[in-house]
Simulated scan of single mutants.
Amino acid sequence: MDEEIQHFVGYLENVKKVSRNTVMSYHGDLGKMTAYMKNQGVCSVDEISATLLNSFVLNMECTGKSAATISRYIASIKAFFEYLMREHVLEEDPSFFLKAPKVEKKVPGILTVQEMEDILDQPVTDNPKGLRDKAMLELLYATGMRVSELVHLEAEDVNLRFGWIICREEGKERMIPFGGTAGRALLEYMDRGRDSFMKKRPEKLLFLNCSGAPMSRQGFWKVLKGYAAKAGIDKDITPRMFRHSCAAHMAAGGAGLQIIQEMLGYTDVAATQIYAEFQPGIRKEYSKAHPRG
C-alpha cells in the first residue's frame, strides 16, 4: 500500500505538476487512510473494499472531523484509486460509490464599497512609504490577486501602458487587467517612491520594505490593518478580505463568474459560485422570464 502511494505522489509531482502543498495534502490524507486500514488488518490495496472505506469515513465523522475535512479526504482517496485503475493495478474501484458530505459554502467576509474607499484614501502620498502603500492597496483591490502574488511581483511584471500585470505563483502565471486608479498609483510609486526603497541597489521585486528587503505577507498585513484602523473600520481586516471584496464588487457591477474565475486564478468556476448572489438583476430577470416567477 505504501509503495502505491509513493508512486501516486510521484505521478502528482512529475506528471500532473501539482503544487507542493497539494502533494503534501494528498500524502497526509492517504497516510491516515493507510494507518486505519492496517489497524483493520489490511495491508494491500487490493484488499480495500467499499465497506472498509465507508467505515473509514464513518470513523472520521465519529471523531468529530468537519464536513469540509471529510470531503477533502474523500477527494484524495478517489484520486488515488482512479490512478490505480488507470495504471491497471486494480480492476475495480472501491471508492466509486463514496460520496462527500455537503459542505455549506459561506459567503466570505467582504467590505462595502464605501469601507474600501475609506481604506484606500488613508495613505498620505507625499512620501515614499505612502506612495508604496497606496500602490499596493489599489493594486490588490483592482486585481483581486493573492497577497503572496502581490509581494512577489517584479517591476517587469507591470505593463503600465496597457494596464496589465503578470502574476506568477507555483509555476503558473496569468495576466490580470487593472484600472486607471491603480495605474496612476503604480506610476507615482515607480516614478517617485521605489528608488528610496532600493537603497541604490538593483532589485527586481516591485515592492520592498523600509530596509530595502522584500515585503513579506505579514509586513503587508500590518500595513493594511493600520490603515483600516485609521479609517475607523471595526472589522477583522485581512488581505484575503480585499480579494473577496474585489470579486463581490465586480459581480455586483455585472461581471460574469467566468471572468472573476480567470482574474482570481481559480481552477474551477464552481469556486466563484459564492459570488453569484451579488450579481444584479438575476431575481428580476427570473421573475420576468419564468412562467412561475
Rank of each mutant, 00 (worst) to 15 (best):
Q218M: 11
F197E: 11
P202Q: 06
G183R: 15
F207D: 01
R184P: 02
L224P: 08
L208Q: 13
E203F: 06
L224Q: 02
G212M: 02
K235R: 14
G226S: 14
K200A: 10
A247P: 06
H249G: 04
K230C: 10
L224F: 04
Q218N: 04
R243E: 05
R217M: 01
G253R: 09
P239W: 02
M241D: 07
L187G: 02
K199C: 13
G256C: 06
D234N: 08
C210P: 03
G183D: 02
A251T: 07
Q218W: 01
P239M: 11
A185Y: 14
S196L: 03
G254V: 12
F220P: 08
F242T: 06
D236T: 07
D191F: 00
L186N: 02
R184E: 14
H244K: 12
C246N: 14
I233N: 10
K200P: 10
W221K: 09
M198P: 01
Y189F: 14
A248G: 00
R192E: 08
A255N: 00
A252P: 07
T238H: 05
K230E: 15
G253K: 11
K199N: 14
K225V: 10
L208R: 06
F197I: 05
K230W: 03
C210S: 15
R243C: 01
A251I: 01
C210I: 15
K199W: 08
L186V: 09
R201A: 12
L186A: 11
K200E: 12
E188W: 03
P239H: 04
L205T: 08
A228P: 02
D236K: 15
K204Y: 05
R240A: 13
F220A: 06
E203T: 09
